[in-house]
Amino acid sequence: MKTQFLPALRFTAVLLVLCCVIYPALVWAAAQLALGHGEGVQISRNGRVVGFANVGQQFTQARYFNARPSAVDYHADNSAGSNKGPSNPDYLQAVRARLDTFLARNPGVRAADVPAELLTASGSGLDPDLSPQGALVQVPRVARARGLALAPVRALVQQHVETSALGPAKVNVLQLNLALDALR
């Protein structure tokens, strides 16, 4: 026992230094060179931090582009999805209610024009993005709420569409809304 156990204990201590002190210290040192210095990329407006670039936040007001539904109301210290199964009757009821609410708040929009991400909760509850269609469909409402013409708002959305060689196109809701506030 003693011949097996004590060396294992000592070896573990050495491994702890290697994997849990040296390795994280190297990563931490590299992070100091990165944007945000490893503390998360923060976005400020008028000297006040208003959000993290990658972390979605709640936008429910009519004058902003609304973010996706979230199972945790965008509380970024408690990430989670809804975990609702695709055939759950309560879930389908909730999606229908979201659709009705959306149509009521966005008169003139047809159900088939509402992309599914505006009616479904994301995996983390903190999804920072919408698809381009998810933002475009909200343009008339946002423009009306702010007394703006449609064209500049639509152009703003189009400017904020991020595409790359691989993967889906997306719009960062926080960046879009900050630009929207700056438009006036």
Binding site: G36, H37, G38, Q42, Q58, F59, D77
Partner: peptide, 27 residues
Amino acid sequence: VFQGTPMTWAAKAPLVTVQGDSTFVSR
């Protein structure tokens, strides 16, 4: 880390969002 994943020992950040909601961002 260069794509924005945190590597910090700082506590979660208090945040007042654009809309005025209060929350925290864990890191």
